[in-house]
């Protein structure tokens, strides 16, 4: 096994720095029919809440130029279903498991973290940045004082390394990042989607039933890259960079900006093999350029 790509994030050893982004990959079951999940550094599972959530009305998807909007509303069958059904499935695979957790209230975030504390899960990712739920989500992620308080409260119940997923919809991402770290975040993952909108001019109404949704895809990558760069320079914890990554070149940009690892989301919809191709591409780049370890290029941008 070639370990040049091994990446340790908050004590969790990933075989390579490529992770799936929450909400785009389910719990790996469907994409596992097409790709070998053992190839991935980690799978980040779609947001899990204490109780089942029904999600938002359809249409939930709109395509935009070089991107898309979604308003799923964190539909999920709840943490008990995850533990019983998805976790054993993922554990059959040789990959790390990151569970994205969500809630409408602080108590719900704490409860799901506590329920997972003793489970065979490698990392939790606290979702305080989803734009598609009315309570919780983004409401917890835009004020540095609230971020610090929420992270500190949840941290108390968490049994694994804790990543906090940040929203780009803030005045100063560095300030939010510092607040999350001061609340106890071991890892930061960014960025979540930006709020966007699309109107069907023939029907004269928004395409999405919820009118607005989260914008993702290659169109957001420059924004994501800038924010990852800024955050990597502002805090000492590892950063998982994401936002529009579709190719190995994109992934390397994030790593050079300082990201410890990267997550691939919307690209999976366009190409189910995107993650595997990115891993191969990074490996090829390292071989061609005689790079023995990703640390040689990680954060090399001043």
């Amino acid at each position: 096994m070639d370990d040049r790509m091994e990446t340790v994030v908050a004590g969790v050893a990933l075989k390579n720095p490529v992770i799936t982004a929450s909400g785009t990959f389910g719990a790996g079951r469907e994409y596992g029919e097409l790709i070998d999940l053992d190839r991935l550094g980690a799978v980040t599972v779609k947001g899990v809440s204490c109780e089942p959530w029904k999600g938002n009305p359809a249409p939930r998807i709109a395509e935009t130029q070089s991107g898309m909007l979604n308003s799923i509303g964190l539909q999920n069958p709840g943490v008990e279903h995850f533990i019983e059904y998805d976790l054993p499935f993922l554990r059959q695979h040789d990959t790390k498991i990151i569970v994205n957790i969500c809630g409408h209230t602080l108590a719900q975030y704490c409860a799901v973290a506590e329920r997972l504390a003793d489970c065979d899960v490698d990392m939790l990712e606290l979702n305080i940045s989803c734009p598609n739920v009315e309570e919780g989500g983004l409401a917890f992620g835009t004020d540095p004082h609230v971020v610090e308080r929420v992270v500190r409260a949840v941290r108390h119940y968490v049994g694994q390394p804790l990543a906090v997923k940040l929203s780009p919809e803030v005045a100063d991402i560095k300030e939010i990042a510092r607040a999350a770290v001061s609340g106890g975040a071991d890892v930061l993952s960014l960025i979540n989607t930006l709020r966007g909108m699309k109107i069907d001019i023939h029907r004269r109404r928004p395409v999405l039933a919820s009118k607005t949704g989260g914008y993702s895809g290659p169109g957001i990558m420059p924004v994501a890259l800038r924010m990852v760069y800024e955050v990597c320079r502002a805090v000492d914890v590892p950063v998982i960079g994401m936002g529009g990554i579709a190719t190995f070149e994109d992934a390397l940009e994030f790593i050079m900006a300082g990201a410890a690892a990267v997550a691939v989301g919307t690209a999976n919809f366009h190409n189910p093999y995107a993650t595997v191709e990115i891993i191969e591409g990074i490996r090829g780049y390292m071989e061609e350029n005689n790079i023995a370890s990703l640390d040689r290029i990680r954060g090399i941008i001043d």
């Binding site: 389910g26 079951r29 994409y31 779609k46 359809a58 939930r60 998807i61 539909q75 395409v207 919809f269």
Partner: peptide, 28 residues
């Protein structure tokens, strides 16, 4: 028919309200 993203069941984009017999409530 519904607007889709992944097409394979991972993203939950193409939701339709279904109530199975014997179940108390609908689900997407």
């Amino acid at each position: 028919e519904e607007r889709m993203a992944c097409g394979i069941g991972a993203c939950l984009g193409c939701a339709v309200k279904i109530q199975k017999p014997g179940e108390k409530d609908w689900q997407y």
